Amino acid sequence: EEEKYTVIYPYTARDQDEMNLERGAVVEVIQKNLEGWWKIRYQGKEGWAPASYLKKNSG
């Protein structure tokens, strides 16, 4: 089951394993960790993003 989330704040990656996020983008969360960083898939790429910048899509 894919978990789709919408980006609610833009984010600029500060590290090579982080993802740039555009507000309104829909991403797939593939791994959650306890530090508040989630691994996401977006446009065929995978990387880490701050969970607080993502909002779960309803339905």
Rank of each mutant, 00 (worst) to 15 (best):
R23E: 13
W48L: 13
K32F: 03
Q31C: 09
A25W: 08
T6K: 13
G47S: 10
E22Y: 07
Q43L: 07
G47T: 07
P10Y: 02
Q31S: 12
K55G: 09
Y9F: 13
K55Y: 05
Q31E: 14
A49C: 12
V27N: 00
T6N: 07
T12V: 10
V27P: 00
E2G: 09
S52W: 04
A51L: 03
G36V: 09
S52P: 04
Y11V: 15
K55A: 06
K45Q: 10
Q16C: 08
L21T: 01
V29I: 07
R41Q: 03
P50S: 03
L21E: 00
E18R: 05
G36K: 14
G36W: 05
V7C: 09
I40L: 05
K4S: 14
V26N: 06
E3Y: 10
E22N: 08
L21F: 02
V7G: 00
W37S: 04
E18Q: 13
K56Y: 03
Y5H: 06
A51N: 12
R23S: 09
W38L: 01
V26G: 02
S58E: 02
I30A: 07
L54C: 02
K56D: 07
E46M: 12
E1D: 04
D17R: 10
Y5A: 14
Q16A: 14
K56V: 10
D15S: 12
G47Q: 15
K56A: 11
I30M: 06
T6W: 04
N20I: 08
G24W: 03
G47E: 01
K4N: 14
L34K: 11
D15H: 14
A25E: 15
Y11T: 09
I8W: 09
V26E: 11
D15C: 10
V26I: 08
P10F: 01
V27S: 00
A25K: 04
K55C: 05
V27F: 00
Y11D: 02
K32P: 04
Y53N: 14
G47W: 05
K55P: 00
P50F: 01
G24P: 00
V29T: 02
N33V: 08
N57G: 12
Q43A: 12
Q31G: 12
M19V: 14
K55V: 10
E46W: 03
E3F: 13
S58R: 08
L54R: 00
E2W: 04
L34W: 03
R23C: 07
V26R: 05
N33P: 13
K56H: 08
E22K: 14
I30T: 13
K45D: 12
K32D: 09
R14V: 09
E35V: 12
L34Q: 14
S58K: 06
T6I: 13
